[in-house]
Amino acid sequence: MAPIELLLFAFLIAVALLVARLRDLLAAALLLGIFSLLCAGLFVLNDAVDVAFTEAAVGAGVSTILLLGTLSLTRREEKSQPTRWAPLVVVFVTGGALALGILDMPAYGDPTAPIHQHLAPDYIAGTAAEFGIPNVVTAILTSYRGFDTLGETAVIVTAAIGILALLASGRRWKGGAP
């Protein structure tokens, strides 16, 4: 799997650089869809098929349409700006710190890693006994961490209402009467 993943990562970097270089915002918004599809492919290769599906549906579908909706309220071309080096330095320092942090983590898929030893055995043993449903992930999301999921859903609903309000108000300005 490793060569395929490396190639997909190379594609990912190529798309990211391309999006950063493009001045045509419509094309950049569309290319971000390819970025999401590549992420989804990488997630599938790492056996995270549910995360991959969310990434493909939200990243390549919904968020592209949201970006296009935003673009219909503004201009298609990005204004050319002078090159600033400070953000690049910040990005590289942050990325380097994150990479250093990864070096300290247990090996990928290691069954003796702390995350697999702490609560996971209780969840796996308790799902069938306490809730009687077969899917451990569902039990964790909706029962063990039910309030957490409720909070996340509230955040998403708030964000959706905000975006809809922004896009709707802009359209009213543009079209005159609502």
Partner: peptide, 21 residues
């Protein structure tokens, strides 16, 4: 399932590019 969402997303994108909504 990916083939299905790919199709639906492409229709939505084309519609948006063509009509703006």
């Amino acid at each position: 399932v990916y083939a299905l969402i790919n199709f639906v997303a492409m229709i939505a994108l084309l519609k948006f590019v063509r009509f703006g909504s």
